[in-house]
Write a protein that binds this DNA or RNA. Structure first.
Length: 292
DNA sequence: ATGTCCAGGTTTCCTGGA
């Protein structure tokens, strides 16, 4: 079973390329970030024709996360406890946009689904913008709320196969940062505060890709020829709980997806999971022939 | 070369965000 994450940078611009990649690579579940649209604008039919169901959390042209899955998704969540908000309310979204723990409007940055035994989250961590920006404080508070929730979920069920997948907007190790415009001490993504926050997830979830793919970036800025110069950063991660990580049999970073016509600035990150290592119900569901 | 993409609106360029 293949589970992947991809910051697609507008699904309306990219859906042909995304679906082609999904089918070509036999992906079962894809967590998307930066879909940049509302659910009513999402190209649902194109995904359905390729055999994928969708769950979508999008409010406007900013942010937005979604799942495409060949398998049934249940227990859909669009926030987690204590999630802070940011900025002003989005016009026309008053009915669906909740209020965060800090009293500000909640953004479309998280989506949780259950697929068989798996609990999966598609996450678009706030960028931070700059070290002295309110968005940076928001980034750290958002991550702390996620960490606290992760701790609670795993306290309730230590054997939960949980994966936190998405664009974390943090380069945890020096080798993960190859963009010379980012420097430790002056820039987001590499600050001690962000790296400490990332590291604080360590007892709960671990990077399931790095042990298999020790090197390589997942993002290259469109500007300044960053991709041809390979001046990218590794900021997209699949962070798995113990039960999830123990079932991982393979992984890849799909660097070729940064090439060609109209690529996203991020590439997909993939994990292979052996469903037989989870309890039986899911294996049965997984092995059922697909019906179109 | 403050570089390139994306979406929306006040379009046929401007803005904000990354």
């Amino acid at each position: 079973m293949r589970i992947a994450t991809w910051n697609v940078n507008s699904i309306r611009t990219r859906y042909g390329r995304v679906i082609d990649w999904l089918v070509r690579n036999d992906i079962d579940v894809l967590a998307m970030q930066e879909i940049k649209c509302r659910p009513d604008q999402f190209p649902v039919e194109a995904f359905a024709q390729a055999g994928y169901q969708l769950e979508i959390n999008g409010l406007n042209q900013w942010n937005g996360v979604a799942f495409a899955s060949r398998h049934e998704m249940t227990d859909v969540a669009r926030t987690f406890d204590g999630m802070p908000g940011f900025g002003a309310p989005i016009k026309g979204q008053e009915a669906v946009q909740g209020e965060g723990a800090n009293g500000l409007p909640i953004e479309a940055r998280a989506l949780g689904v259950t697929v068989g035994d798996l609990r999966l989250w598609s996450l678009y961590v706030p960028n931070g913008r700059s070290l002295d920006d309110p968005h940076f404080t928001y980034k750290l508070a958002w991550l702390e709320a996620l960490r606290a929730n992760t701790e609670a979920w795993l306290a309730e069920d230590p054997d939960l196969p949980l994966a936190l997948m998405g664009d974390w907007n943090i380069a945890p190790l020096d080798g993960d940062m190859g963009d010379p415009s980012f420097t430790v001490g002056r820039s987001t993504h590499v600050s001690p505060d962000e790296r400490s926050m990332f590291a604080s997830f360590a007892p709960l979830v671990e990077d399931v890709v790095r042990p298999i793919v020790p090197e390589g970036y997942t993002f290259w800025d469109y500007k300044a020829g960053r991709f041809p110069k390979d001046e990218g950063m590794r900021i997209d991660f699949i962070m798995g709980s113990r039960a999830f990580a123990d079932a991982v049999t393979g992984a890849s970073i799909e660097r070729d997806e940064r090439k060609g016509d109209a690529p996203s600035d991020h590439v997909p990150v993939v994990s292979d999971v052996d469903p037989s290592l989870f309890s039986g119900s899911f294996e049965d569901e997984y092995d059922r022939p697909m019906v179109f």
